[in-house]
Simulated scan of single mutants.
Amino acid sequence: MDEARRDRDAEGRARSARPRDGLGRPLPHGAPGVERQPEGVVRTPAQTLTEAQRLLDAGMPFHAHEVFEDAWKAGPEEERELWRGLAQLAVGLTHAARGNTTGGARLLLRGAERVADSPALYGIDVPGLSRWARQLANRLSGPVDPAAEAPRLVVRA
């Protein structure tokens, strides 16, 4: 592809301008799509968890992954593995919803491991998320409904 013709963001990084569906899959130019999450948003941990949970509950784990990715990249060093693990869980659910059971299971298990090795901060249900991811990975046999499978991120009081 001609480098000059690639879609670029405001900073000049390659970024597809094609619309995306709710699971982050590219759609044809001009098709109606789901608005993408803005990149590089700095949120408090509570805001990150609230926004990610909203997106997971709406069946949009790809978009939740992008919210976690912002936290992973902007957060303190000692929290990055937790946020990275949460991003992997969300993208694992994305792949599972798309019907990629092998890739989904791998990402869910990798995220479960990373989350399990992280401190439980901000009320995040680390043991519950790790258990959820392992159970989902072990029973994947076809596409799943991402909203029905959405985990609870925070322990309810």
Rank of each mutant, 00 (worst) to 15 (best):
M1P: 14
A4T: 15
A4C: 09
R5Q: 14
R6E: 15
D7R: 09
D7C: 09
D7E: 02
R8G: 10
D9W: 09
D9V: 08
D9S: 10
A10Y: 14
A10T: 14
E11H: 15
E11K: 13
G12S: 06
A14Y: 14
A14L: 15
A14K: 05
S16Y: 10
S16E: 08
A17M: 07
P19H: 03
D21F: 12
R25D: 14
P28S: 13
P28W: 06
H29D: 12
G30Q: 04
A31R: 04
P32W: 11
G33W: 03
Q37Y: 12
P38I: 05
P38S: 15
E39L: 12
E39W: 11
V42E: 12
V42L: 10
T44V: 08
P45E: 03
P45A: 04
P45C: 00
A46C: 06
Q47R: 06
T48I: 03
T48K: 03
L49W: 11
L49E: 04
E51I: 05
Q53P: 02
R54L: 08
R54E: 10
L56Q: 02
D57M: 04
D57S: 13
A58F: 04
G59Y: 10
G59Q: 05
P61Q: 02
F62H: 15
F62K: 11
A64G: 03
E66N: 04
V67A: 03
F68C: 03
D70N: 01
D70I: 00
A71L: 04
A74K: 04
A74T: 14
E78R: 13
E79P: 02
R80D: 08
E81V: 08
L82C: 01
R84S: 14
R84Y: 07
G85N: 00
Q88F: 00
L89V: 03
A90R: 01
H95N: 10
A97S: 14
A97I: 11
R98S: 04
R98M: 09
R98K: 13
R98L: 15
G99F: 10
N100T: 00
T101N: 01
T102V: 10
T102C: 00
T102M: 05
L107D: 00
L107I: 00
L108F: 01
L109S: 08
R114L: 08
V115S: 05
A116S: 15
A120H: 05
A120G: 09
L121F: 02
L121C: 09
Y122L: 04
G123L: 01
I124C: 01
I124A: 04
V126P: 11
L129H: 05
S130Y: 06
R131I: 08
W132D: 04
A133H: 06
R134C: 00
L136V: 12
A137E: 07
L140V: 03
S141I: 01
G142Q: 12
G142I: 11
P143M: 02
D145K: 06
P146T: 01
P146Q: 01
A147L: 13
A148W: 14
A148N: 12
A150T: 05
A150I: 05
R152T: 09
L153V: 12
R156W: 06
R156T: 11
A157F: 14
